[in-house]
Design a protein around this nucleic acid. Structure first.
Lengths: 343, 343
DNA sequence: TTGAAAGCGTTACCAG
DNA sequence: CTGGTAACGCTTTCAA
């Protein structure tokens, strides 16, 4: 194993100084075209590869951003990663992805690791509403931009989505179709995100002169699919004795996963969607577009989220930021598929 | 903005040398317990964070492995990443994930970047069967371990799954249920993976004294869901004029995505699964377990894949590898759900 | 047990 | 335009 080829190796072979090689490599104008050519071809020939560690050390720039997410196998994150990745690339940054496994301790570990890597900024979809453990470690040494469902105003910089508007879009659509008995099934309602979705639902129902009908369990209740499954069964068991007219004609859920649970329960109970009941979800996870699912749902613009997040983070990274906080809220939109129908 | 706190800062404040701090930080035995304590508490107090770039530079170890995948939003990869990540962590490595967007040029770019980062090994799920462009860049400077559907024996180190066995499991199950007319719909059959799945199907059918019935289009045909959709419609249009008995009673597909296409077509044609026809997929993507899908399918042990891949890569990374190539093949297993039925 | 000194590969700053 | 020279922050001898 011969010594690896460094800038010095090249310099020697080319009969120039290390400084000259560095300049040629970095496209500096302070070098003659002839020398540059010579150096560059020599680099190609010898298979020279820059040592990023050495560069980072001296320039104090790693050209790397960190990304912390709770779980990459949760349907929404792969696309968010891609959005962030694409935009970061445009701006000359690499993204270092860390999956925290929904664990505070891993979140802490990774933040420390990212700090050791000297990332220039971090995008975090935090595990919990409270991010004080993160702040405590970072101590403001690196700008952080928060994204995801746990975002709230305690956080300095964030990109959120307008969850109230999302609900309003969903309800408005159902009302347009003639529905008046619209129940909302909401899991996990402690988070800001879910609170907003509920608020939007309530506001739009009221605006249309309808009575809100909210099914939302405590934090000890199951989440996602399991929750939707149980609550829908509940809803129908309870109304079983009553007239059929007392049932909701449409269900709006706090997430697609909850909607999936509803679908499962409905199938078991012989309730047809959308013939017997209309259903609208939230998130537009990949499943929602499957031929066997085709769920009408509220989508957040994921690519746009990535773009915005990186742009805001970069603003926060500037030597003397113009403003104190960097925040943005994205507008969701309704994706019409096959689980809603005129009544 | 004061100077960041370095090992020197600590050394000064503690009244010791930089070397001493380094030793304390790295748990070296060559240092007194008292001095160590003093140094450590000072580090905590001042919020000292190691500079990984500087460490890498001098130790020539980045403690980082690269991972190249074609598309993180493809259902199978998030879990593979997690498996790899977990195992790498156990061995003290971080994983740098690169999404190549199914693009040869990005694959090349990222390989170069990883080389610049001085990753100590790379796991690659390549975009194409041919990986010569990667070899050309890497020049053997870093060990590579290949995974994924494109793996073939041209590649030095790899972890594959036994696709022949997967098919045999599927067919054997269908035969046990009484099926004799079992068609296989296979997209994208140019790859080693798909060839093996076909071979396994053929072998098992023959072993059971049944006639293989293979539907496999050329490379110009669509892939995945679209392919399954079209081929299933084809199959039924063709057999529409014939007796119903001439139709297959079961379909085995080369992937879950193809099976999803079949389900869509079947739904449109009024063919009930599994009442009218049984269906088995391959891959066990997350969708497969959805309540509205519940697809019986062949699964590769993804976590095991991650473990093995990292272990083999680490073997290949050892100074003087024991053997030339590092290869392993994993055994798939059949996941029984609700799309197959006794005939 | 401790520390001084020598690098690791690169860039930045000047003086030629 | 070019090339020494001095950092960057750390680890690793080796001598005390």
């Amino acid at each position: 194993m011969g010594m690896s080829v460094t800038i010095k190796t090249i310099a020697q072979k080319a009969g120039v100084s290390a400084a000259a090689v560095s300049k040629a490599l970095n496209g500096s104008p302070d070098i003659g075209a002839a020398t540059r050519e010579k150096i560059l071809s020599l680099c190609a020939e010898l298979g020279y590869t820059r040592n990023q560690a050495a560069r980072s050390l001296v320039t104090n720039r790693s050209s790397t951003l960190g990304l912390l997410i709770p779980d990459i196998s949760t349907p929404i994150y792969p696309e968010i990663f891609k959005g962030l990745d694409a935009q970061a690339k445009k701006r000359g940054y690499r993204i270092f992805l860390c999956d925290t496994n929904r664990t505070i301790s891993m979140e802490e570990d990774y933040v420390r690791i990212l700090l050791e890597q000297r990332v220039q900024g971090i995008v975090i979809a935090p595990v919990s509403n409270d991010v004080s453990h993160i702040q405590r470690i970072v101590r403001g040494r690196v700008p952080i931009l928060y994204i995801g469902g746990k975002v709230n105003d305690e956080m300095e910089n964030y990109v959120a989505t307008d969850n109230q508007m999302g609900s309003r879009l969903a309800i408005s659509h159902l009302v347009d179709l003639g529905h008046r008995r619209i129940a909302m099934i909401c899991d996990n309602y402690g988070t800001k995100t879910k609170k907003d979705r509920i608020a939007g639902y309530r506001a739009e129902m009221t605006a249309k002169g309808l009575d809100p009908w909210i099914v939302a369990g405590g934090s000890d209740h199951p989440e996602g699919m399991e929750y939707g499954y149980r609550m829908f069964r509940n809803l129908f068991d309870l109304s079983a004795s009553e007239a059929k007219a007392a049932r909701p004609s449409a269900i709006y859920t706090s997430s697609d996963m909850v909607a999936l649970g509803v679908m499962k329960a409905a199938a078991e109970l012989g309730v047809k969607i959308p013939q017997d009941i209309s259903l609208v979800g939230y998130d537009d996870i990949m499943f929602a577009s499957l031929p066997t699912v085709m769920l009408t749902t509220v989508a957040q613009p994921r690519f746009e989220l990535g773009r915005l997040a990186i742009d805001l983070l970069c603003k926060a990274m500037e030597p003397s930021p113009q403003v104190e906080t960097h925040r943005a809220t994205l507008e969701p939109k309704l994706i019409l598929r096959s689980t809603t129908r005129k009544i």
